[in-house]
Design a protein around this nucleic acid. Structure first.
Lengths: 96, 96
DNA sequence: TTGACAGGCATAAGGAAACTAGGTATATAT
DNA sequence: ATATATACCTAGTTTCCTTATGCCTGTCAA
């Protein structure tokens, strides 16, 4: 969900995706490379993102990932499920 | 965290723990028995709960679990970590 | 000019934890 | 008598993350 979310504003390559999530979470969340790249492969296969090789700001060969229409849909689904789950957990934590 | 939380008000047996979480979450969360009982075993070994055999309201032999001091500490730790994580995720979802 | 370092992609091996699916047993109500 | 709900437990599988590793390249300082 977080990866899809940070791609919402436009294409990014893997390295920057991880940096972005780390920064936006105030350094609380860290997406390891061993999690990120397999996850991106999976999203590619599912058709949630598409990938293109290009050159980064730092002049290196990088793979840019772009959200597809299906990816946007998936993001919205996952965000709803996440809200539903955290709301439910909140209920238990407050009430019990 | 949820199991520890529902034990906060007093001892319960496994079956009721699952029912309680289900009900308090408005039927959103379901703790399967295949998750619950192994989890309770682990918490026993860690010393977060203690267990005693007894008779339920429904007149059956059941195992009542009670939060220990360590369990209360663990609950508070896990609740803090959970808050920290969800706050961080919230930041990414709002900002990105 | 060469070596260190950061940036960048990727996979393999291991572990943690959930789910599915099964097994056992008993009180109660029909 | 039997169906149903209650109640505990474990084995096997899957899923996902983490750790560890490998490889490559651009930049900058010694």
């Amino acid at each position: 969900m977080l990866v899809l979310q940070v791609l919402h504003n436009g294409p990014l390559h893997g390295y920057v995706i991880a940096q972005r999530i780390h920064a936006l979470s105030n350094d609380v969340l860290a997406v390891e490379e061993g999690s990120l790249y397999p996850a991106l492969q999976k999203m590619l296969m599912k058709g949630w993102v598409k990938a293109e090789w290009g050159i980064s700001e730092t002049n290196r060969k990088v793979r840019f990932y772009t959200l597809t229409r299906d990816g946007r849909k998936q993001l919205s689904t996952e965000a709803s499920e996440y809200d539903r789950a955290t709301t439910a957990i909140q209920s238990v934590m407050r009430t019990a």
